[in-house]
Design a protein around this nucleic acid. Structure first.
Lengths: 341, 341
DNA sequence: GTTTTTTGCTTAAACGTTTAAGCAAAAATT
DNA sequence: AATTTTTGCTTAAACGTTTAAGCAAAAAAC
């Protein structure tokens, strides 16, 4: 019963005594094939349980209909939601996606790029690892002539598309909100400056302070890897200051969680004594006590836009990689950790 | 400057005035090619920036070196960790993985199977959606003659490999622990019985109660979809009982979170009045207040085993799909929600 | 110095499609 | 009725590899 040999286009051709080419055309509804033949071919295909060999057609057409996706990790709600929407959008057009994770490692990321190129993907949609400082390795993708679309982490000066939120404005939103809550000493636990989006958040923070005539204190601006662990460390560092902050804006939710843990442990009242705002709107921000205010990055929209941007390139014959930045506005979700009491 | 045309094996052959076959063999270190030629070929390959065309070799060899992975979702720590370990293990042997999500939908899952088969994967590693009641559609995979390995959700009577934890024993562990904390009325918010692993947890719960001579009360055993929302609903239902439970064992962490939220909202002291134990050891169980006791499912080990099980099949010439269940013991992580006070 | 073995390649076919080019028969146009 | 156009196919080549088979030259064995 073991139907080992897969049925090919030739098998169908043999049954009907026509050429393989005719079968191929019939299956693709070529106008030069009679309706009668098309029906017959499709019937036989069904009977023999024919499944097209994707490798063969991809080889012949020079196009795999696969799109590679590189993310730092999938176990974050943001990335998993982006991925889901990319997939949905691309599936509609007959593309499938290959997801790879860099685990925040530059080396792994380079590996992933090689893997995807090796698999002959038709395009790559990526968000960079924390470690990734420059986009040199990504040049490899461009030099292959396949579309590259970056999102979230990965704003760039390369001639490459980018989808993200307005980080600079988001910082303003947060500082505005905290000032409204009568906060005077607002600290910022930011990401590494070398990553553009984190640098934008820092710039936004600094400019917003100026706007409100709040003095900028170097002790209150700290760079961090934004892990929960590092959030703890940087919070402890801030609490050692003589002149403590009365609000903390953390550029990532995981680090904000770490900060909150320290505050809770030291019985510092949040938000009464110190208000806290995170970034990313990870689901756990609504789970912890107190719930953490955070910024919603519109993951679904980012995913959809990344996909459609790829499709625009794919549909063009000529590959014209043009700088095409799409910047969305984010929403501040105010929760207990920064709410007026 | 646009190096549009990719360099092929033939280009290398032309440069060196040897045949394409010789180049192919040289690149694969065939013993019948001289060291001198090999060196030359590799040098030229490097110079021309040669990248093998995976599609062509896959087509010729009848083997794509791709393995498909199907998970209900990636934004859970369990699945993302399993995936990461599958990938690591398979990469070592030259395989790459394609990750797809079912979003807990049976229809999407069937779609994913088709997609993966279409992409000519060499095997599929999957955990089933909540909705998936039977493995009928998975027969398609078996009938193609490619290895299928199920993990976590997907224990089965099919002749298919399975990797998972001992759910029955885990329930015993949890009940034993709660009894040790002097709990007498232990409720269970379980998953749907039609899924084997949840049924096993239910059986373990029932048998453990018997073991400790605790009466089994039908009001205390509830089936649930195990979402946070449904966890809330089922908790509210339990609190309406005249004779309330003094401990709740929830078969999933997200539902346990919902239950905890309700308990907190109603100012019911956890664990003093009602103790709570979840399942899955999702990171947030250690983030919420109080922290939730849970069961660690050894995601890394499950991932590794799933990968090596696939590799065992792949290495064999003949596909002998034999029932090969690997059952791991899980660990109970006791946290505040069930700790003796 | 002849025979056998080994080395180092080449040739050609194959994997399953797609597609350009071509051609006979049928249909439409004159 | 002769010519042109359209229809419905076929043939053959191509995509970039891998691999079985083969063969001449070099090396080893006698």
């Amino acid at each position: 019963m073991a139907n080992k040999k897969k049925t090919t286009i030739k098998d169908i051709a043999n049954v009907l005594n026509i050429s393989a080419a005719a079968v191929s055309k019939a299956l693709h509804d070529d106008s030069r094939i009679s309706e009668k033949t098309k029906k017959a071919v499709k019937q036989v295909a069904k009977n023999l349980n024919y499944q097209p060999n994707h490798l063969a057609s991809a080889l012949r057409k020079g196009k795999s209909n696969l799109v590679g996706v590189i993310v730092p990790r999938t176990n974050s709600n943001f990335f998993s939601s982006v991925i889901q929407n990319i997939e949905e959008e691309l599936n509609k057009e007959g593309y499938n996606i290959i997801i790879t994770q860099s685990n925040e490692s530059y080396k792994k990321e380079c590996n992933n790029i090689d893997t995807l190129l090796f698999t002959q993907v038709d395009g790559i949609i990526a968000s960079m690892a924390n470690e990734t400082v420059n986009l040199e390795y990504y040049e490899k993708i461009k030099s292959k002539g396949i579309p590259l679309i970056l999102f979230d982490r990965g704003e760039n000066d390369l001639n490459v598309d980018y989808i993200g939120i307005n980080d600079y404005d988001s910082s303003h939103m947060i500082v505005d909100h905290l000032v409204q809550q009568n906060r005077k000493r607002i600290a910022h636990i930011g990401g590494y400056k070398h990553t553009r989006i984190f640098n934008n958040r820092i710039r936004g923070y600094v400019d917003a302070l100026k706007k409100h005539n709040l003095p900028q204190d170097n002790d209150l601006l700290i760079e961090s890897s934004l892990t929960t662990e590092d959030g703890r460390a940087k919070m402890i560092q801030l609490l050692k200051l003589k002149d403590k902050p009365d609000a903390i804006y953390v550029a990532g939710d995981y680090a904000a969680l770490g900060a909150l843990q320290v505050l809770n442990e030291q019985n510092i009242k949040v938000p009464e004594e110190i208000a806290l705002v995170g970034f990313g709107n990870e689901p756990f921000t609504a789970m912890v006590t107190p719930t953490i205010s955070s910024v919603n990055q519109h993951s679904a929209e980012i995913g959809r836009l990344a996909a459609t941007t790829f499709l625009e390139h794919a549909k063009k014959e000529v590959i014209t990689q043009s700088l095409n930045k799409k910047i969305l506005n984010a929403d501040l979700i105010v929760r207990d950790s920064s709410k007026k009491n």
